[in-house]
């Protein structure tokens, strides 16, 4: 089990409290085992189960940022929500989220990925975990954190140490063969979003082929078709997230 998961819900020290040693160590003393080494004493304060973390990945230009904006619009009033973005992030992007998603700047954190977007969400998730924890520490308990990956290729997926569920976004303009090609993103994502369906007639993409191939690749895992031009709130994706949040947090 990832250490993150072992402490959810515990009343633990807040990072801004500063940490003091509960007992003194003599200079000659060797480091030793503390009473419960399985409990990480450094996790941020959470008053209930920590926020649901949903990763949103997919190739460059498939509409990840637009989907994040739509989800903020749809869910911002009903859920305590924050976003971590791994994309090359500018104030332009922040303005985009502000304008389109009604998400204040203090609810968005950008993570630099050192030219390796897949590393930051899969192999070395530390900067993303720090960002999620810092958001929770500065904003208080959250219901949902969306982690948007940098645009990558079809093999980029999120580590389960970072997120609980992941959405993979492809678009019809990328060609109707994308679901058939598969790759870990298409095959294993908890939700596959086939985006920009409004463009299908223009790019000659056959949605039924994409649907058939996605089913063949994904078995029982869900796939939704989306056009943010027609559905500014990304309703099927927002509903999928609502269900996750509802089943995760027990009713008070």
């Amino acid at each position: 089990m990832h250490p993150e998961n072992s402490v959810a819900g515990g009343a633990l020290p807040h990072p801004s409290d500063g940490y003091t040693i509960p007992h003194t160590h003599g200079p000659e003393e060797v480091p030793h085992t503390h009473p419960d080494p399985g409990v990480d004493p450094h996790e941020p304060l959470t008053t209930g189960p920590r926020a649901l973390r949903v990763g949103i990945g997919g190739p460059v230009g498939s509409g990840k940022t637009a989907l994040v904006a739509a989800l903020c619009r749809a869910l911002g009033d009903e859920l305590r929500l924050a976003v971590v973005t791994n994309d090359i992030y500018t104030t332009e992007d922040a303005d985009f989220l502000l304008r389109n998603g009604v998400l204040p700047a203090d609810r968005v954190r950008a993570v630099e990925t050192g030219c390796c977007p897949h590393t930051a969400i899969r192999d070395d998730i530390s900067a993303n975990l720090d960002a999620v924890e810092d958001l929770e520490a500065s904003l208080g308990p959250l219901d949902l954190v969306l982690v948007e990956s940098g645009g990558d290729n079809l093999t980029a997926t999120f580590s389960k140490g970072l997120i609980d569920q992941q959405i993979f976004v492809v678009d019809v303009a990328g060609g109707d063969k994308v679901p058939r090609k598969g790759g870990p993103g298409v095959t294993t994502a908890d939700l596959l979003v086939i985006n920009k369906t409004d463009l299908a007639p223009m790019v000659g993409a056959d949605l039924s082929v994409m649907d058939h191939d996605a089913k063949a690749r994904r078995g029982d895992l869900p796939t939704v078709f989306l056009s943010l031009v027609e559905d500014r709130n990304a309703t099927p994706v927002a509903d999928w997230i609502r269900t996750l949040v509802a089943t995760r947090v027990p009713a008070a």
């Binding site: 192999d123 070395d124 530390s126």
Partner: peptide, 10 residues
């Protein structure tokens, strides 16, 4: 490859 954040620093 130790996941200790180094990849994001130059």
């Amino acid at each position: 490859r130790l996941p200790s954040g180094g990849h994001a620093h130059s």
